[in-house]
Nucleic acid binder design. Structure first.
Length: 568
DNA sequence: AAATATGGCAACCGCTGCCTC
DNA sequence: CGAGGCAGCGGTTGCCATATT
């Protein structure tokens, strides 16, 4: 459809009009010339074509000056590029083109101009429009953005490429990257950056963190834990700002992702306690591990992707079909009075309890969906090939684990009883523990003996503790166990409803139970073993002061867990 | 047949990066 | 090195056509 209008179109300014006191596009005078807006007329087209024939493309601002056109340079360029330049292919996209667009988008994201370069005769605008309408259609249909085969193929290519890079260890991968057009996200994991000698060609760096995309792609639960990467103080500050006003309705409101974009992904990951690079779950092989994370609630249905379109869709208007396997009740009904439960410092928040939930989680600047997956896949793959110093310091967080983290949202329901804004429990977990810590220490410094109380739901690294940090309060457990913070946040070894998600290592379970004493300890153990489903009132977090894990027991009392600590 | 909703396209707007001075 | 100009890119908006009620 062309919006070219005839010169008689009353929206078109006559030459007389343009010669009159002039206004610019916005109605202001610009150098005595009225720059016209709106549809182009055939006469204008002719003028522009003639001008370009004579002077060539470029220098668009000169067009207006020299051709008599009353259009700004930008408008001229756009008109020429999208409609007038030779070799433009008109008409609907062919099936081949459509398939190519899908594949290209999977690789490039919203890089329309780059995609257009792969589609001779097509313009970025056309592709963009096509994609946007396609997104709408698929969203309406509840279909994943990318067909499975595209996801699979892209991932395969990614993995092959990555393996090749690692195996070769040379600089001969420019071709690979150039060939497949993959782009390494701007903020790449350090492992990849370290590989830049191996992967020297970084065609274009989307200004988006792969992690961010991944997080978004993984859905809100992931998004929700991202803030853990914030500097602790900032987290604390933000947490107050974020949640202090929320005595009531929970909404997905997360600190800006931008907050993390200055941090290296490794830093982010480590801050989370994430193994870095991430290790894939050895039990989940193949791309489906990423395209559809097994066990994932948000990711089921093949809609796992991390691009803006999807993030937007998932984030805000994900069709209900995209949660087909999700028992929404498991997310915790979003009671208006429900305080947001973030597992300690984590800002963990619920995914949309309904298909259309307002979310303020900012979308990272646009990028491709699958791109994030691919990047993550690379990262995961790198994990196997990278130094042990990182892996040794990390527990394995599998996609399934990550997906399971969704179950953290279960916690939300467990705080319902503490929704009173006046209660510390009505605040974020961070603020909760900010407030609770002094209480729990009976006046003693946290560096001193703090009444230690268990923590649930953290994956405990079985490696012995940092011997340099030996609080004397570790009477119940002689060793200090490091807990990957991200494990705690990611894994759902939280006290899920029905204890379905409790996977606490025995050592921690026992320690916690001991710390809790007979009654609570017994209750706790019953939960962790699944023999009791009475998890109401339990909560977990970390002490904002010293990063010690803490537990909230029914009744609202919070206690620090000695013998364990989060490691960043 | 009219009103409304939806789809599709063209164009505009704002931002960013590059280049020149 | 910083400012200004320019070109390009991506997001958004507006308009028209078509479909649906």
């Amino acid at each position: 459809m062309s919006h070219t209008t005839s010169d008689s179109d009353d929206r078109v300014l006559s030459r007389d009009q343009t010669d009159s006191p002039l206004m610019d596009e916005g109605g202001n005078l610009v150098q005595g010339v009225l720059l016209k807006k709106g549809p182009w007329t055939s006469a204008e087209d002719a003028i522009l074509i003639d001008y370009v024939k004579k002077h060539g493309e470029g220098n668009w601002n000169a067009v207006q000056k020299n051709s008599g056109l009353f259009r700004c340079g930008k408008s001229c360029r756009l008109r020429w590029a999208n409609h007038l330049r030779p070799n433009l292919k008109k008409g609907a996209f062919t099936q081949e083109e459509e398939q190519l667009i899908v594949e290209l988008h999977a690789k490039m994201g919203n890089k329309w101009a780059r995609m257009a370069a792969h589609l001779p005769g097509r313009t970025d605008n056309e592709i963009k429009n096509y994609w946007n309408t396609r997104i709408k259609r698929r969203q309406r249909a509840g279909l994943p953005l990318y067909p499975p085969e595209v996801s699979f193929q892209a991932l395969q290519e990614s993995q092959n490429q990555n393996i090749g890079a690692i195996n070769n260890g040379d600089t001969g991968h420019q071709d690979i990257l150039q060939t497949n057009g993959y782009e390494i996200p701007d903020v790449v994991f350090d492992s990849l950056k370290a590989n830049q000698g191996v992967l020297p060609y970084v065609p274009e760096l989307p200004d988006i963190s792969g992690s961010n995309m991944l997080m978004k792609g993984l859905g809100s639960p992931f998004c929700s834990f991202m803030p853990s990467t914030i500097h602790r103080q900032k987290r604390l500050r933000d947490s107050v700002g974020l949640f202090s006003g929320y005595s009531g309705r929970v909404k997905n409101e997360f600190p800006s992702f931008d907050q993390f974009q200055n941090d290296s992904p490794e830093k982010m990951a480590r801050t989370f306690g994430l193994p870095f690079p991430l290790e894939p779950d050895p039990t989940t092989k193949g791309p489906e591990s990423f395209g559809v994370i097994q066990g994932s609630q948000t990711l089921s249905n093949g809609n796992f992707s991390a691009s803006k379109p999807t993030s937007g869709a998932v984030k805000l208007e994900l069709p209900s079909l995209q949660y087909p396997e999700t028992d929404l009740s498991s997310w915790g009904a979003s009671s208006p009075q429900q305080p947001l439960l973030e597992t300690v410092d984590s800002f963990i928040q619920s995914p949309p309890p309904t298909g259309t939930v307002e979310s303020d989680c900012p979308s990272p600047r646009n990028s491709g969906l699958l791109d994030a997956l691919l990047h993550e896949a690379k990262t995961l793959s790198n994990a196997k090939n990278h130094s042990s110093d990182k892996s040794s310091n990390s527990s394995s967080v599998t996609p399934a684990d990550i997906a399971d983290s969704c179950t953290l949202n279960i916690c939300e329901t467990e705080w319902e009883d503490y929704g009173d804004a006046l209660s510390p429990l009505g605040h974020s977990a961070t603020s909760l523990f900010n407030e609770c810590t002094p209480l729990s220490t009976s006046g003693s410094s946290l560096d001193e003996q703090a009444p230690v109380e268990p923590y649930v739901g953290c994956k405990v690294k079985s490696e012995p503790v940092d011997q340099t940090w030996t609080p004397d309060r570790g009477k119940e457990s002689t060793n200090l166990y490091d807990i990957s913070q991200a494990d705690a946040l990611l894994s759902s070894d939280w006290l899920g409803q029905g204890s379905a998600y409790v996977k606490n290592p025995t050592v921690m379970t026992d320690a916690i139970a001991n710390l809790l004493g007979d009654d609570l300890g017994s209750e706790y153990k019953q939960m962790t073993t699944g023999t009791s489903t009475a998890s109401q009132g339990w909560g977990f977090g970390s002490c904002a002061w010293n990063n010690m894990p803490a537990v909230m027991v029914p009744g609202g009392q919070q206690k620090l867990i000695s013998g364990f600590r989060f490691v960043a």
